[in-house]
Each structure stands twice: as structure tokens, then as C-alpha cells.
């Protein structure tokens, strides 16, 4: 049972945490931590209606905690990422992609950026997104649409500027 749940969700949860933290090692640490706490409460997870939603919510909260803690300790995400990604070209590619995507999402309000991440990066259905974020499905859809429209303009403007240059 435990093995099956870990196998089923591990990749998507690490990716989910990674795109909130920016460090692969910290992301897997958080996912492990959440899995262990999840299984420690055996009675809970066996009767739980939607373990996937619970896992996403818990990891999301852990990521927020991590940011809060690191903000106080003045540790930048970049420095953590660099130290863990050293000597691994694949890690560098992953990091480059993370920075590219994060840079685009940074121009959106947090609530829209979050929905775009959940839908596009985590490939969750709107119903699942609504459960995890605690908002109605229609709101999730409209935030998604607004976010997409803003990025369309940004990408178009970027192309025009590039052409002019």
C-alpha cells in the first residue's frame, strides 16, 4: 500500500515542490518528510477520501514554511540550487528551465501564477486544483484564463521587441 502510493505520486510531488523551491534536493527532502508524516498517521490515510489533494496541500504548506524560514536566514534559492546542482549538467538544464518558467510566471499575480503552475506544470485537472487551493472550479478556470491572456501579451511584446532589435 505504502509503496504503491509513493510510486504513484513521487515524481509529480517532487516536481510540484521543485517548482516552488528551486532546489531539487530540498524538494525531495520536503516530499519525503510529508510522505513519512502521512504514513505515520496510518488510520488517517487509509480512510482519507482524497490522499492526492492532501499530499499536494501538505507539500505546498511545507514549501511556504521553507521560504519563510530561508527569508529569515537570508539564504537565497539560487545559492542553494547551485551548491546541489554542481557537477551535473542535467541539473543545470533543469535549473535553466526553472528560471525561464519562473521568470515568466513572476509577471503574474500570485493567485494566477499558482493556478498556471498547477494546471500546466503539475498537469492537474481544474477540479483537483479547486480542491487543493480551496477555490471554486470556475474561479480556478478564470484565473487560469486571465494568466494565459497576460502571458500571451507579454510573449508577443517580447517577440516584437526582439524583432525590432
Amino acid at each position: 500500500m505504502i509503496e504503491k502510493i509513493v510510486e504513484k505520486f513521487q515524481n509529480q510531488l517532487i516536481r510540484f515542490a521543485f517548482y516552488r523551491i528551486g532546489s531539487l534536493e530540498v524538494a525531495q527532502d520536503i516530499v519525503q518528510d510529508v510522505f513519512i508524516r502521512f504514513f505515520e498517521k496510518k488510520q488517517d490515510f487509509k480512510t482519507m477520501e482524497n490522499p492526492k489533494s492532501f499530499l499536494y496541500k501538505s507539500i505546498g504548506n511545507q514549501c511556504i514554511d521553507y521560504h519563510r524560514k530561508n527569508k529569515i536566514e537570508f539564504i537565497s534559492i539560487d545559492s542553494i540550487s547551485e551548491s546541489h546542482f554542481i557537477n551535473n549538467s542535467n541539473h543545470y538544464e533543469l535549473k535553466a528551465e526553472y528560471e525561464q518558467i519562473t521568470h515568466l510566471l513572476n509577471c503574474l499575480p500570485e493567485e494566477q501564477s499558482e493556478i498556471l503552475k498547477l494546471r500546466i506544470i503539475d498537469e492537474l485537472e481544474f477540479k483537483e486544483i479547486a480542491e487543493i487551493t480551496g477555490i471554486p472550479v470556475a474561479t480556478a478556470k478564470s484565473r487560469f484564463r486571465y494568466g494565459i491572456d497576460k502571458l500571451k501579451n507579454k510573449i508577443q511584446t517580447k517577440n516584437v521587441v526582439n524583432n525590432e532589435l
Binding site: N11, Q28, Q32, I148, I155
Partner: peptide, 27 residues
């Protein structure tokens, strides 16, 4: 789809067997 493609990671992250075993050992 241009926006979707700009935001969709192409690099996959796949945990290996040890990740799962480590959780079980820890438990």
C-alpha cells in the same frame, strides 16, 4: 499553446527506487 509550451517543463524528474526505499526505511 505558445504560452502553454513556454511554461511546460521539458525536463522530467523521475525518482529512482532508492527514494521509495528510503521512505520505508525511515518509517
Amino acid at each position: 499553446f505558445n504560452v502553454i509550451s513556454s511554461l511546460k517543463p521539458k525536463t522530467k524528474i523521475i525518482a529512482n527506487q532508492e527514494f521509495k526505499e528510503s521512505i520505508i526505511n525511515n518509517l
